[in-house]
Amino acid sequence: MAGNRVLVPLSDTVTVRQTVSYAVRSGLEDADSLEVHLVVALPHDTEVPEGDEQREEANQLLARARRWLAEDAGDADVTVESAVLGDDEYLFGPRDYADAFEEYADEHGVDLVVIDPEYKPGVTSSILQPLERELDAAGLSYDEAAVERPARHERLVGEGTERFDRYFALFWISFGFYLVLGDPTYWFDLVTGVAVAGIVSASLANVTFSFPLDRIESPIRTVRFAFYVPYLIWEIVKANVAISVVILRPSMPIAPTITRVNTRVRSGLPLLALANSITLTPGTLTVRANDQRLIVHTLIPSAREDLFDGSLERAVRFVFNGRESARIPSPRERGDAEIIGGDEL
């Protein structure tokens, strides 16, 4: 009988060890030989400065997983392959991961993906549910590893410095906001501000940031965001004028279309910023946001062209990922923009 071939995507979680043994156990249940493909998917291409470090971590994880496999397999017939995926492209959302896994699975004839329930590639938050949906869509069968995991709150509490950064950042954000509303020169407001900011950061720091803060990167992002706002306002003014002209013309030359744009921004705050910016600009309206796939209603052709040129997407990438990553092809050039019928909503 031909052996099973399973694909196990790894990430550094508390349950990764159990996932590996589950893959071996379940794989050997109905076959006498097993081929395990261990892969680590990197979220960003390794061209970025921290790329080497990520690559190194990925290789260490793979080496550890190989040892675990050898331990679990005993004398059963288990062969191991390992690979690092996504080091030459950006994997932004669950869909990209599913695509990468599918490509790998096709190449190596893998028929089952065993997923760690806590699977958390790179630095994004858990993507298990959307990933399963995308694997379904890609026609790849998967199995969620049966693992025992520690209670969730243990995971939420980050490491020492990271936790401190969260409290620190949230404290100053809330303190600053309090003083904007109050009077920064009045001692009473300063004292109550410290108290309020302390309570806010102590109680909410763990849920405020979905993304680990970086001591250098996060302030830079805030500064870049300050550059983004005037740009966005300028875009809004331009679009407002264009739409006003169309509405006030007696013939009202509108050409509404429904378009689908696959964006290349990370889920969470960047995607929110992009979708909101698209909606804020008159002429384009985000109707649906399924992960990175935005369904956008456009009112006039020029607004659609602007959307397909992806200037807002570049700007959002500039804010969150820096100038390097802003230089990507427009959605039109990538083939990520298309006009779809109204019935496909």
Binding site: I236, N240, I243, I247, L248, G283, L285, H297, L299
Partner: peptide
Amino acid sequence: FVSAVGVIRLPDIYARAHTASQTDTL
């Protein structure tokens, strides 16, 4: 004003949502 005109003139709810955001932004 343009936004109000747009809400009256435009054909459907999606198109009207575009122009409604004009009031809020500019």
